[in-house]
Design a protein around this nucleic acid. Structure first.
Lengths: 102, 102
DNA sequence: CATACAGTTCGACGGTTGTCCAACTGTTTA
DNA sequence: TAAACAGTTGGACAACCGTCGAACTGTATG
């Protein structure tokens, strides 16, 4: 029942990811999620970043909409999991799009 | 007398690149420069993108400041050359920064 | 059921940024 | 040298975005 690995990007996803990565703090959150083994608790982000819950929720929504993280509810808590495959797909697509075909 | 290939990013360059890539039109210009064999004339960009010269100049400055393109003056004209090595260095650093060490 | 807690949504505010026009610098050419 | 052309810079404006507090939804626990 695992989510499938993503090797290619959906239409518009490339642009959404580029925007999601552009804000330093949001990227730091993504990186923080990536550092966690398996999942990262939302509470850990609230503890580690000096911004309000509302702002964290907003950033995480952007990351999720871009497909960079997955949201996992556990009762009243929320955990996040990095989609490393999506990051890698974006990196590959980035290099591909600036390269001359052939 | 070639410029050296860049395999690692300068301090702050990662953030500058992320921001530079975030605007779709600016990225399209970068891609357009990449499609050209060798260099891309500024005039080609002025022809291909429906924005003013001022806007193009602004975007290209951002790309150059991020190190993604090189500016080459030829008399009154300006050409741009893609720094594919920098794009690749960014892509690698991106994957590295979200991955757990080890 | 009531209280407390985790997270989301909403409205507002301020800073950033993409865009243009106009004025400027620098280069070619008549 | 004057006119034309290529590109840059500065100022202005609108749209976007990161941020917060407050109100809300949903979940646990007394």
């Amino acid at each position: 029942m695992d989510v499938e690995q993503q090797t290619t990007l959906a239409p518009g996803q490339f642009e959404r990811i580029a925007k999601a990565l552009a804000d330093p703090r949001r990227f730091a959150m993504l990186s923080s999620i990536g550092q966690a083994c398996d999942e990262c608790a939302n509470q850990a982000l609230c503890r580690d970043f000096p911004v309000s819950k509302a702002t964290i929720s907003h950033h995480l929504k952007e990351l999720a909409t871009a497909g960079l993280v997955e949201q996992v509810r556990e009762g009243q808590y929320v955990n996040y999991r990095l989609r490393a495959d999506v990051v890698e797909a974006y990196a590959a697509e980035l290099v591909r799009r600036v390269a001359r075909p052939g």
